[in-house]
Design a protein around this nucleic acid. Structure first.
Length: 602
RNA sequence: GGUCCCUUAGUUCAAUGGAUAGAACAGGGCUCUCCUAAAGCUCAGAUUUGGGUUCGAUUCCCAAAGGGACUACCA
């Protein structure tokens, strides 16, 4: 049982004994005591004031008195400030806690809940390279999966690749017309970047055609539909769906280039998938589901042959499911994908990590799946995150105002290496390879933390003109704290011959008194499991970022005030080493749930 | 027009309905003969507006203002 649970029980017993009040655990509000007051943990007594029919300060005093007398030594002091009862907890309790935490290798890991969660994230189109928006998606998706695993779920990470559709046809068409057989090998470009370039090229030529038609007197709306290039692309999509051999071969070849590029980027980013679905394999399933819905009267066909769902009774509008030429749309594909997934896995919870611009889509998808008789439809979770904005607005692939994922990672690692050059003291005696590896971890750590520390629901701003910080509330700050501890532990082993295993053997450390900084650190460590649970319940890596930062701050402050290796009292030294080791492990775990690696030195 | 989201220091971000709204960066001042100064200490600086609920509101409710997303036979 943790401190909150014990205190909650004691507080309930106290109000029962004092005021004959049957309070609920929810009414027992415990919070950390503010630093300006004396005490460790504070009970808010306002909820009991009415039943007690006494002034808040008096109620606080009475409860404080009761807890001190009947709390089995846990509470050994209190003070009441209005309705706030500040409790002092005995130091031996904290030392016991530290011992228990240090001994628990799985500290923070929640027990297996026996259920399976599928997390879909990334889900790129195959017509352009990944950009900063995808980076946020990937980092969030990966971290959410890790966090839910820590909360006891079995998690299957999945990716649905949108490998078919008009977008890839545009790239294919532009490549055929203007590519002169260019390949990743001949051009030296990564496959995804090469394809992306042709997507941009298509748009450029298309707009030229539209402009010409408009100049010839056509209105813009019509011109956009009548431009020869777009008609060709549509014809190509139709051929693709009909299985035209040439189109399919070209498609397979160009997609393979893109996948090779994506794989490189994913690997670098440190994200992975357990199962990848391709839209080209799922859209037919979707079509057949739509046909079924049509037969059962859930959907209807218009005169032009297109198929629609009427969602007006759910407060929404009508939604297209199949185009008049019979080709499928995004929604069709998602229905098919859902069906396949539930055939493949016994999914208890399905989570889609997709931007908030698609909230409407998932609202509709949920209703459609439900209507088609899928039991999971109603339960699906759209983990909707905010956009990454640039100073002048949203990123637009076609307008070239995107921050490319590969470029960004390069830049971060480069910056990290540049900064580390000034740190010759700490990087002495390491190979260039090791230095590069440190720069990689630190650069990516800075990027990942920068993105994950923001509440996922909110839009966030990225200014490419200003480089991401390596000081202050950043990934490298936390990594630095870890590296610092590793350095101390190395010295402890080499110079004092303290084996890390020995520390845990040091029975109950009979330390006279805990330094306030030591106490603060232990308290922070005690918060970790609740933080993991909250991050899971809220789907929020940001919660863990805040925790890791606070833990690192606490440690740096402790490190500044308390000497570890030079502490003459052996028991104190052992306690500090154990504390440092446990902090390091917790930092590593928390950062691991964020997908951020920690270097042993930096 | 309709639906949804957002608004906190100069800037980027925090704060289960709780005490004097926290950090970081940028700015001013300190601290390396001392376990890694990517650090520590310190000064200055903010809840868009108006109502309401509450012992107590950044948080909940209702308006208004400002910003964004969606409302595609794109994905």
């Amino acid at each position: 049982m943790n401190l909150e649970q014990i205190l909650t029980e004691q507080a309930l017993a106290a109000v029962k004994a004092l005021y004959d009040l049957d309070a609920t655990a929810q009414q027992v509000q415990l919070q950390k005591t503010r630093p300006e007051f004396e005490g460790d943990i504070t009970l808010v007594v306002f909820p009991f004031v009415k039943a007690a029919r006494k002034a808040p300060a008096q109620v606080a005093t009475e409860i404080g008195e009761w807890l001190t007398a009947n709390g089995e030594g846990l509470v050994n002091g209190y003070n009441a400030v209005q309705g706030f009862l500040n409790l002092k907890i005995s130091q031996s309790f904290y030392i016991d806690q530290l011992q228990a935490i240090a001994a628990d290798e799985q500290y923070g890991q929640q027990p297996d809940n026996g259920k399976l969660m599928m997390v879909e994230y990334s889900s790129p189109n195959t017509n352009k390279p990944l950009h900063l928006g995808h980076v946020r998606n990937n980092l969030l998706g990966y971290s959410i999966a890790k966090i839910q695993e820590a909360n006891g779920w079995k998690v299957v990470k999945t990716n649905i690749v949108n490998d078919r559709g008009i977008h890839i046809c545009k790239s294919m068409l532009a490549w055929l017309k203007f590519g002169n057989g260019e390949t990743p090998e001949t051009s030296g470009k990564k496959g995804d970047h090469l394809i992306g370039d042709y997507y941009v090229r298509f748009d450029k030529e298309y707009r030229k055609q539209v402009a010409e038609l408009v100049a010839g007197g056509m209105d813009e709306e019509t011109a956009k539909k009548e431009a020869p290039l777009i008609k060709e692309a549509q014809a190509m999509l139709l051929k693709w769906e009909q299985g035209d051999k040439e189109v399919r071969e070209l498609w397979a070849r160009m997609n393979a280039w893109v996948y090779a590029g994506f794989d490189e980027t994913y690997k670098r980013m440190g994200v992975s998938f357990d199962k990848i679905y391709y839209e080209s394999n799922t859209y037919l399933e979707g079509k057949s589901e739509v046909e079924k819905g049509l037969a059962s009267g859930q959907f209807y066909r218009r005169e032009d042959g297109s198929v629609w769902a009427n969602l007006e009774k759910d407060g929404l509008d009508e939604k297209l499911l199949l185009r008049s030429d019979g080709t499928s749309v995004y929604m069709t594909q998602d229905i098919g994908t859902a069906k396949l997934r539930y055939q493949d896995y016994p999914i208890d919870k399905m989570v889609y990590v997709v931007g908030n611009e698609q909230e409407y889509h998932f609202k509709v998808l949920s209703i459609l799946l439900d209507r088609l008789g899928f039991p999971f439809g109603k339960e699906l979770v759209h983990f909707s995150y905010g956009m990454v904005e640039l100073p002048n607005g949203k990123m637009k692939s076609r307008e070239g105002t995107v921050v490319d994922a590969d470029d960004l990672m390069d830049k971060m690692v480069e910056d990290a290496r540049e900064i580390s050059k000034d740190k010759v003291n700490t990087l002495q005696g390491i190979t260039p390879e090791e230095a590069q590896e440190i720069a990689r971890k630190v650069g990516l750590g800075a990027l990942k933390y920068f993105i994950l520390k923001v509440d996922p629901r909110k839009n966030m701003l990225f200014n490419p003109e200003e480089s991401i910080d390596f000081n202050g509330n950043t990934g490298p700050f936390i990594q630095y704290t870890y590296a610092r501890i590793q350095s101390v532990l190395r010295k402890a082993e080499n110079e004092l011959r303290v084996e890390s295993g020995e520390l845990r053997e040091v029975g109950k450390l009979k330390v006279e008194s805990l330094d306030p900084k030591e106490l603060a650190l232990i308290q922070r460590l005690m918060e970790y499991p609740a933080t993991v649970r909250q991050a899971g319940a809220d789907f929020s890596p940001a919660v863990l970022c805040n925790y890791a930062y606070a833990l690192a701050c606490d440690f740096n402050s402790f490190y500044h005030d308390c000497s570890i290796l030079n502490e003459p009292d052996e028991k104190k030294r052992a306690l500090r080493l154990l504390l440092s080791q446990t902090v390091a492990r917790t930092i590593k775990n928390a950062m691991g749930l964020l997908g951020i690696e920690v270097p042993d030195r930096m």
